[in-house]
Simulated assay, not measured.
Amino acid sequence: MTGKSLSGATTVAVAGILVAFLVAAGCVGGQPSDSSVSQQITVTGSTTVLPIAEKAREAFEDEYPSAGIMVSGGGSSVGIKAVGEGTADIGMTSRDLKPEEVAGYPGIVRHHVADDAILLIVHPENTVDRLTLDGARGIYNGTYTNWNQVGGSDRQIVVVGRDSASGTREFFSEYVLEKEDFTKTQEEFNSNGGIQQKVSRTPGAIGYVGLGYTEGVKALSLDIDGTAVEPTLENITGKNYPISRPLFMLTNGEPDGLARQYLDFIMSTEGQQIVASVDYIPVQG
């Protein structure tokens, strides 16, 4: 064999090895590889967005078994910081970024994946069915401490809310409390699920949660100029129910690879059906 032939054979062999490596690593083609080598991304942040991320992860991994999507909560502030500092591939938030976060993480790109409403929830045995925004504000700033002050029975109000990392708390503070201080008696939880569980077990409790957290509790209507507006999808999408907001997934720069494919899946027809299935509002038809 001549030197020229040996060189050509070596080139072909190296090229074959390189192609095999790229295929194994999932770098060839537009979808995750079905090879034994897993691709992984991390998604963290808002517990409001968490049900969407989890259900989408399940459906995506069923279709692409080689993909590994690790999803966790922690609150909107956690998600923003994690994606901004590069410790997560995708962050989740139920509020917009604060000016200092925009300045600190200028590369963050927002992806509007769904809409949501904040519901006031009470124990199913509570006789109160509606509150005005002033009544809700009075409960959460400590003005009202007994349910009989807002049309209910003689029972102490147990005020339940989110911790300081929560985007839901931030939105609730701005819209309902008008940035007044929360009552010092408020019991704080780091997730929507924690509030839901507390209220479902406590007859005097009131809490606020996203749309997907109503099992075992009663959602209150809002009294708007004497009319009870229920937190139904029709009222929320029609802008009749006022406490609503967008939900975002965040990336540091435009996403690529598995992060891009996962976000594209959430915005697809199937992904937006998943959004609706967990009681949130799709943003794509």
Rank of each mutant, 00 (worst) to 15 (best):
A228T: 05
K98E: 15
S268G: 06
N235P: 01
Y144H: 13
G73Y: 02
Q273H: 08
Q284I: 09
I243F: 10
S244Q: 15
S36P: 00
V229G: 05
Q149P: 00
R137S: 14
V278T: 00
Q186Y: 06
G26R: 04
M267N: 11
A59C: 03
A25S: 15
S5M: 13
E85H: 00
K198Y: 12
D154G: 11
D62F: 03
Q40C: 13
G212N: 03
D129H: 10
G26V: 02
Q156K: 15
S94I: 08
A9C: 00
M267R: 12
S153F: 14
R130D: 15
A59H: 06
P246V: 11
A15M: 07
Q284D: 08
A53R: 01
L250M: 10
A114H: 07
Q156M: 14
G238V: 05
Q273V: 06
I236Q: 04
P242T: 04
G3R: 11
L6M: 08
I52S: 01
I52E: 05
I118E: 13
P124Q: 03
T183P: 07
L131P: 02
D116T: 12
S191V: 01
G238Y: 03
L50P: 03
S77I: 12
A67C: 02
Y208S: 10
V209Y: 02
Q40A: 15
I139D: 09
T185L: 07
I281K: 05
A103D: 14
Y64T: 01
E178D: 15
S72Q: 09
M1Y: 13
V14L: 08
G210I: 03
G135K: 13
K218N: 10
R137C: 15
M92A: 07
Y213E: 04
T42I: 13
L120C: 10
A15Y: 06
E187D: 13
Q284E: 10
V37C: 11
E101I: 07
Q39S: 14
G285W: 12
G253C: 05
L120D: 08
A219R: 00
T48G: 03
Q261V: 14
F265R: 06
G194S: 01
G271Q: 06
K198V: 10
Y280E: 12
I118K: 03
Y262I: 11
D154M: 07
A15W: 10
S36L: 14
Y64E: 00
R110G: 13
T269G: 09
Y262W: 15
T48K: 02
T202I: 03
G138F: 12
R245G: 13
V113P: 02
T127I: 15
T132R: 04
T185E: 12
I139F: 06
G29F: 12
G74F: 08
Q284K: 12
L119K: 10
N148H: 14
A259T: 07
T48I: 09
G68C: 01
T48H: 04
A165P: 02
D225R: 02
G151L: 04
S221N: 04
D96Y: 11
T168I: 12
G8N: 04
D163K: 02
Y262M: 13
P106W: 06
P99W: 08
V278N: 00
I90R: 07
I80N: 02
G86M: 09
T185W: 07
A228M: 08
V160L: 06
L50Q: 04
T2G: 15
V12Q: 05
I90E: 03
A67D: 06
D134A: 15
I90G: 04
T10I: 14
